[in-house]
Simulated assay, not measured.
Amino acid sequence: MTGTKIQFIRGLHNLRPEYKGCVATIGSFDGVHKGHRAILRQLKDKAAQYGLPSVAIIFEPQPQEFFSGEQAPARLMRLREKIEALLEAGVDRILCLQFNRLLRSLSAQQFIDQVLLQGLGIRCLVVGDDFCFGHDRSGNYRLLQDVGSVKGFEVIDTETLEYNGERISSTRVREALDQGDFQLASDLLGHPYRISGRVVYGQRLGRQLGIPTANVQLNRYRAPLSGVYVVEVFSGPDCMPGVANVGVRPTVGDLVKPVLEIHLLDFDGSLYGRRIEVEFKYKVRDERKFDSLDKMVEEIHNDIAVARQYFADHSIDAGKT
């Protein structure tokens, strides 16, 4: 809707009366891949027809994380990245609901009444016909249509987008990343896969070993990647080649949650405190435990040599900034 102020709303309690009246969709939107973007185009088109703002309803944590904890599928993106991607796709507002025992306990009818009607005053809902919601997933597409016909809101099915004969999904993206197939991941996402975050201080072990790294906390139990990769790092206008490790550093044995560590080739500056984006280009090897730090350092130098050769083969200046 032209002229609508973009807003991020955290929690049902922060909804104001002026927010009522919208066209909404509901989902995890992990990765905001091409399939998601097709749904968001539908959402925008419907919002334009109604002359109302478009709203994406998401959950934090994601429902699978609430129920399965550490066993939940690895996130493709953090909340901040998801918000940025949804807004970039043209969503006017994002309502982020905390998925907790209270929300889980709502019946399907209570969710419709409290969130969709009283909270948002929806005029149209764009969801898949396999969408389930409410306590014990008792609500479904048919219930939404039935209630909508009485309460005066439209319910339409989402488009399904396929690639090579299979539906595009976050699961397919995770599988592609796990297999090191970055071209397939890019084809499904619509852009190369990146992880972003702020560079923080680590234990400075890399610097002590003569291989300084920029560290980014992933703030999750599992990452969609694990191992050593050739990467490009973006910070503002700068693009810097490097080699990265995603994992728990089994040789040192000091991590429970994975961290992203990047060694930049021919770079002697500091990135501390800067927000960076790391684009994954090629998988060098799996993360593994070494018998000694000396053997680990030797292997890291081999990794760096592989990265230099990759950039040489792809006509990328390994010293550019």
Rank of each mutant, 00 (worst) to 15 (best):
E277T: 04
L218S: 05
R142C: 04
H13Q: 09
L103S: 03
I39D: 03
Q179L: 13
Q62G: 02
K283M: 15
D30F: 10
F267L: 07
P241C: 10
G69H: 13
E81Y: 00
K151E: 14
L188V: 04
V199H: 03
S105L: 11
R288W: 11
E159L: 09
P224K: 10
S186H: 03
Q118F: 13
R101M: 10
F29P: 00
V297S: 04
H263E: 15
A244I: 02
D268W: 11
A72V: 05
N14V: 05
I276H: 02
H314Y: 14
G253C: 09
N100W: 06
I9C: 06
A318V: 12
R308S: 06
R167V: 15
G206M: 07
Y282G: 00
A24H: 01
G21W: 04
R123Y: 11
A48C: 03
L116N: 04
D130V: 09
L188N: 00
E261C: 11
G27D: 07
L264M: 09
S292D: 08
R249D: 07
I39H: 01
R10M: 08
R275G: 05
G269N: 08
K283L: 10
R285Y: 11
I262Q: 01
P53I: 02
V173C: 04
R80Y: 06
G253P: 06
H263N: 14
R194L: 06
G21V: 08
E154V: 12
S292G: 05
G3S: 09
Q71H: 05
Q42F: 13
D187K: 02
P53S: 06
G121L: 07
D181T: 02
V284K: 02
L205I: 15
V32Q: 03
I300E: 01
